[in-house]
Structure formats: C-alpha cells, structure tokens
Design a protein around this nucleic acid. Sequence first.
DNA 1: TTGAAAGCGCTAACAG
DNA 2: CTGTTAGCGCTTTCAA
Lengths: 333, 333
Amino acid sequence: VTKAKNIKDIAKLANVSAATVSRVINQNGRYSKETEQRVKRIIKEHNYIPNMSAKGLRTNQTFVIGVIVPDITNNHFASLVLKLETGLFKHGYSCLICNTNESRELEQKHMKSLSAQNVSGIIVISGMQDYPELNDLPIVYVDRPSKDMRSNRAMIESDNERGGYLATEELIKAGCKQIAILKCLYNDPNQVLRYEGFKRALAAYGIAEDTPLSEDLSEVSFDAAYNKVKSLLDRKANFDSLMCTTDTLAAGAVIALRENGLEVPRDKLVTGFDDCQIAEVCGPGITSVHQDVDEMAKLATRLLLDMINKKELDQLYYKLPVSLTIRSSTTKL
Amino acid sequence: VTKAKNIKDIAKLANVSAATVSRVINQNGRYSKETEQRVKRIIKEHNYIPNMSAKGLRTNQTFVIGVIVPDITNNHFASLVLKLETGLFKHGYSCLICNTNESRELEQKHMKSLSAQNVSGIIVISGMQDYPELNDLPIVYVDRPSKDMRSNRAMIESDNERGGYLATEELIKAGCKQIAILKCLYNDPNQVLRYEGFKRALAAYGIAEDTPLSEDLSEVSFDAAYNKVKSLLDRKANFDSLMCTTDTLAAGAVIALRENGLEVPRDKLVTGFDDCQIAEVCGPGITSVHQDVDEMAKLATRLLLDMINKKELDQLYYKLPVSLTIRSSTTKL
DNA sequence: TTGAAAGCGCTAACAG
DNA sequence: CTGTTAGCGCTTTCAA
C-alpha cells in the first residue's frame, strides 16, 4: 500500500478534488453516496490521517483542550484529569496537561502557551487567577470561584464551606473539644471557605476557636502538615483532633502522630477533605469530605463543548453538593 | 494598545518584513541589534503570540509531545508525568496526556491521534505495544522493554527482575516461609520480570513456590488485590506474607487484612513495588521497591529532545537500578 | 454534486 | 542585514 500523505493524494487516488475529500471527511454533505464510499475506502486503505496543524490553521479550531492543574500527583486532581481526558477524547478532543506547581507565574506562562497553540478551550482547575484577556477562548474554571463571567466562561465548584462544616461537626459530635485545623489560607479561596465552615460549626456548637491551633501552614503539602503536627506535639499543644483541609494534609498529620506513638482514632481524631485514595488507605482510613469529581468532570466537559460549539448555556455557575465519607479516623473506639 | 494578530501586523508596525520578524522570534540571526530591539518591543507592547498551528504546518514541528500512560491516577505514573511535563515545558514543549486505561485499542487510537497532530515526539509509559509504523516519529518507551529498535527510538526500564528479587529476599530474611504473590502476568512484561525475581529469590533460599499462592489476579487493581486476599483468608490459605507487584496491590492487601482483623506486620508481612505515596502512607508504611522516577524522567526528556534535534544518541537502551525502601511492613516486631 | 482557487500565519530559499 | 516569494495541508466560498 503506497503512502498517501495529504488530502491531494487521496483526491487523486479517488478521482475527485481535494474539496470533495474534505467534505467527506468532515461529513459536510454535498457529495453522492457513491463518492463518499469510494473516498472513505481510499482513506482507510492508505491509512490516511489528516494533518491537524493545517486544519487548525484554516479553521482556527485545534480540537485540543488545555487543562491547567496545580499538581497532577495529587490524587484528587488526577482523578479529575482522568475523567476529563477520557470524556473529551470520546468527543475527539485531546488534552494538553499543564502543571502549575501552585506558581502564579507558571500558570500564566501555561495560559499564554495554550493561547498560542490555538486550543479550542481551557479547563482551569484550582487556578489562582482569572483570564478575562483571553477573550474568545471558552474557559471553564473548576474548583474555585471566579469573577470572569460572560457567555464563554463557566465555573464549577464544590460547596467547600459546607464541607468544612460537615467535617468539623463530625469531630464535635464524636466529642472533640479542642480541634486544631491544618490549613493555608494564602492564595486559595477554597481553603478560606473550608475554614469558614469550620468556624461556623464551632459557633453552632458553642465552641470557642483556639487561635494557636488555627495557625496557618506555610503551604498545602504533606511535609508542611507533618512538620506542623510535630511542632504541636513538641510544644505539648492541647488538642484532641485535627480538621485538615485536604487529604494530603491529613496524611501528613496521621504519619506525624504515629511517629510520636499516637494512634488515630485512639489518641486523636482526624478528618480530611477530597475523599481521595489517600484517605481510604492512610492509617485506619480517614473520614473525608467527598467531592463529586465525577459530576464535576461531566459538567466541565459538557459546558466546555457547548461553549466551543456556540450553544447557549442555561447556567454558567454550578455549586456541587458535598457529603461526608465516614471512616475509622473519627470513630471513637 | 491595538491588537496585533499576526506576524504581518507586527512587521508593519516595526517597519520591517514578516521574514525579519520571524527571524527575530526564532533567533535565527541575520538582523541588526537595532531591528531586533524594535521588533521585540513591538511584540511585547502588543502582546503578540505567534500562531503555533501555522508554525507547525510550515515547519512540521509542533513542540507538542504525546505522553501515553495507563492511568494517571496511579501515583507512580503521575509522578513520572509531572516530571516529564515540567522538564519538557522548560524546553518549550507541551504535553498531550493520553490515558489508555490499559486498553490496547485505546492506546492505538491515541497513538494514531498523536500522529495526526504532528506531535514532535511520543513518550509511551508502560505501553502494550510497539509502534514501528510511526516511522519518523521519535519515541521513547518507558517502563517496558521494546523490540522497536532504531535511531529514533529509545527505551528505559527499571531492573524489574532485581526489584522482585529484593522484595522477596526481604521477606525471606524476615523469616517468611510461605509467601503469597499478588501479580497479573497477562499483558505486562514488567509483572513477568518481577515474578521472575520472586522465583529466583525463593530458589536462592531453597524455598519451594506454593503454586496456589501464586495464582494470577484478574487485573492489576486495588479491588482485585483486595478480593484476592479476602478469598485467601476465606479459604484459610496458609501464608505468612504477601509480595505485591505494585503498591496499589499492596494497599488493597493491607486493607483486606485489616478488615479481617489482621495487622501488618504483626500477622502478615507485605512488600510493594514502585515506592509511591501510597506505600508511604498505607497501614504502617509498606516496604517497597524504589524506582528512580527522577532519573527516568530526566533521561526520557533528554533522549527525546536529542532525537527530535537529530543528535546522535550514544545509547538507546537504559536499565535503571532499583533499591528497596524499607518500612514497617516487613519489620517483625 | 463537484471543482477551482484563494488564503489561514508562518518560514525558508533566494535575491539583493 | 533585509525583503520578496512560494508554499506547508486544509477548508470554503464561488461558479459550474
């Protein structure tokens, strides 16, 4: 079988013009059944694959979606990305993955690069900024609020405040009085909301917040949580439980406790947030706020594709409900 | 500031030809210091971003790398992808992420799609197949052997056999006599190699393999491992330890044991493979075979870029050493 | 139902 | 050192 590199080769082989081949490929009608079948046969026989750069240049549509994510090694984000990629690929779109490593600068560089590549749309997961200057580009902001509202922008977030409330309430109901919180408000509105929920729960149950136990972490990471808990223990801080604003933090906490001879839930209760694999697997299993990642991904995919295809969206903003997945870490023995 | 969409606009504004602008952008020389600065200034002022589709069409170089991966939610793969993406982006390349979900068919579809998109190169992680038909495309096969050898193919794997040996030896040295192995040979040469190592270690220490304990899993997944261990316990199989060919399997095993009131390492010893987050965090911490993901990523990046830039490679095949990260799961109390 | 022709934005000869 | 020109492969009028 000879190699047909481009649409002209196919046209020649099928005794039609390139225009007709193009119409067949794109199912644009205006060709006979006969021609269609012949062209399709030739394409298959020669294993012809259209050149997407040319198509992209011509149509200004690349069928590539940029996905911005803080860190793909975080299981919560990875789950989201897996579902997004799988869903989008079914519709003929590929995903450019961009890790920002929580750096504002890298995030901007990536957005610029995506725009240069003429991506069809962008999904920004837990981004740190809006991008109103990317005028015509459809963008879905996932996992964070955004001010950038208009017809080609959408926004999906979980009810983080309620999540914070639920987790805290669970600890209170288990009898906890001195709840430390592991969080880092700086730069992340979700963290702020989870903390709001925390405070609302304390207030609802008439518990005063113990400010030293609420001190911010330097960053949202396993190590930061691990070190914070070590230092709490070192200075003999008085706490009976830890409300952690992500599962990664919860894992760091559990490990730090264990290394100091403390067991969860025997000695301290712990809650996490995201309900990802680490919560299932860490220590005795960590009670965690479940986000509906599946729905998030489905919604983001649908909204983005609709925007790309210039469909009117009935709704541009979604706040998804959360639930609590209860595991051993909050079960007093 | 007016909007300059394309290179001609910039050229006009800078009083030069498009060719000169192109030269400046690509640092191709053959322009005066003066012109360069003027052009650069105009570009910056107008926030001009070159169109990559056009560039790609013209040069047949897209600066996009396809990354094929079985499942990005596996922390081992996620770590690899993060490092690859970060490294490649520094060199101006973006990564198209493709999850195959272990499906041969999806893998092929993705490869075809990548080829259509004129990617500059492909990194195939734990792929199930070679792609010799993608003639001119540089490909690095990571995490698996490959028969597709030539100048624009490279291949990097860990010493899986030795990993299997080390893990098994660790169990034996801790006094284990009846070692069950959780594996799934079907479709994955790495699994086979790890199993080879397992058998070699048994032989070296004069232990006979207990065939019923070596039965294959239906697939490599947390659930498969979980169910397998449950069924081993149900039928009162005689084993003192579990050698697991991935950390995910080890996690499934640990959880299944725990749910049956058995603790690691008190009642059973366990080893994993990959030394990823889950091994650090699961149960008491799981002893696991460490793969040098960092070196893998660096090597893959370098080799791929060299192939893209037509540099002669001194070596096309790399087998990276592994080590054992020892944690509590193999420490008899 | 089909084909001819123009052009998307860029780069690479080639000429000056 | 710089500009002119000719496409890369595809889609899309327009005309037939």
